[in-house]
Design a binder for these strands. Structure first.
Length: 118
RNA sequence: AAAGCAAACCGGCUUAUCGUGUCGUGGAAACGCGCCAAGGAAAGUCCGGGCAACACAGGGCACCGUACUUCCUAACGGGAAGGUGGCGCGAAACGCGCCAACAGAUAGCGCCACAGAAAAUAAACUACCCACAACGACUUGUCGCGAUGGGAAAAGGUGAAAAGGCGGAGUAAGAGCCCACCGCCCCGGUGGCGACAUCGGGGGCAUGGCAAGCCUUACGGGUUGAAAGGCCAAAUAGGCCACACUUCUUAACCGAUACUGCUGCCCGCGGUAUGCGCAAGCAGGUGUGGUUGGGUAGGCUGCUCGAUCCCCGCUGUAAAGCGGGGGCUAGAUAAAUGAUAAGCGCUUCAAAAAACUGAAGUACAGAACCCGGCUUAUAGGUUUGCUUUUAUU
């Protein structure tokens, strides 16, 4: 598998898995993100990105933030290496649009948190 | 040339690295290669239609919507052309532009704040005119005054609006009481498909405003909405059929009553329940086998070739229609169409012109079944038309 790709299999799309993640998963806050994660028995890490409609009324802004987070995960996901895999949800909680470089940095930090806490 | 107004259109480009989705192609697979990949509003969800499911014998009333005319259209509350009224520009026009909830107020009910005498069967304030008891004056039969009785609706002031307007004649003072012109109403002619325009005759005014209070007239209106709907495999509740065992009461039809469906109500027509009447033989439970299969989560489909787009010709004042040629132009589903970096272009500013340099800015905004409109947001730019100002000929 290529290093920087991000296929559909790496995204959470099943309703049951999402419900399980939010009911049983543990979470921590890392500005501007809230991260929810749960170890799973699937064959790879799966992520979910969410931006609240109340904080960003325009769809253009929500798309931009989602794309930046996705790129941050895609370009750095090789740093998250472990013997087990996780379901991870990134929820954007800030009220303003943050630069890409900061988001990238925070995502790398989140990987360290997850591997420590498991 | 500049400014203003209106209409139509455009609304960034290139490269590098790493990525995403549909389709095509190679491959057993992993994956590789190629093509394409947001908008003028994709937005608001305000109208109209296609498509789909469900419902529907029919009639009346209610409810909701629309409202100058003709045309366009699949349809519309949209558009085109025109009529009428109002406003703006202008010296002015039969000019140009903008706006209109633009059917009916002699079908009926209701309302008309404040001010004002009075707000709709007019008049109770001031002012005007006539008569005249009492009183006053003096030139002693006249004048003044005004309780009171009557006339009039012209004048003042109030108001958004004061009972057709203006002028004349008339009168005690006045009044469509009478007359001319204008307005209004009625009838007829002419032109126009029509809204309407115009001409002639008659009426003496009867008819204040509000329909965005109720209402009247004419026309239209099933409900839901892609989370619609269809298909697939799995597990399972339930239904149905056959057989066996078991228990003993009660099924169907018709009438009656109650509830309910047809947008609401009534009539009408259906459906269900009750088991009172009439009537008479099957009804319930358990097990086995077969068959069917609601809902839930998942996958596939619906899904993008269409009232389609571009060009040319013809018809029409135009909206638009017809014919010919060419093109295929997003299909995601916890939701792709991107991220990062560099450069270019454009606009503004740095006194003025050109070049250079620097700084700042580069909008509104993201498809979710598909179309036709409307409304709202939008940095900057282009074109066309009209008006005004200045310059030149």
């Amino acid at each position: 598998m290529k290093v920087f790709s991000l296929k559909k299999e790496e995204r959470l799309s099943k309703k049951k898995l999402i419900q399980e993640l939010f009911e049983k998963g543990s979470s921590f806050y890392l500005y501007p993100l809230r991260v929810v994660f749960l170890p799973t028995n699937s064959k790879q890490n799966q992520i979910l990105i969410s931006v609240s409609k109340t904080n960003f009324k325009r769809a253009v802004d929500r798309n931009t933030i989602k794309r930046r987070i996705r790129e941050g995960y895609r370009l750095n996901k090789h740093a998250l290496s472990s013997d087990i895999f996780f379901s991870i949800a990134y929820i954007y909680t800030a009220r303003e649009i943050v630069d890409s470089s900061i988001i990238h940095q925070k995502i790398i930090q989140s990987f360290n948190e997850i591997t420590e806490r498991k």
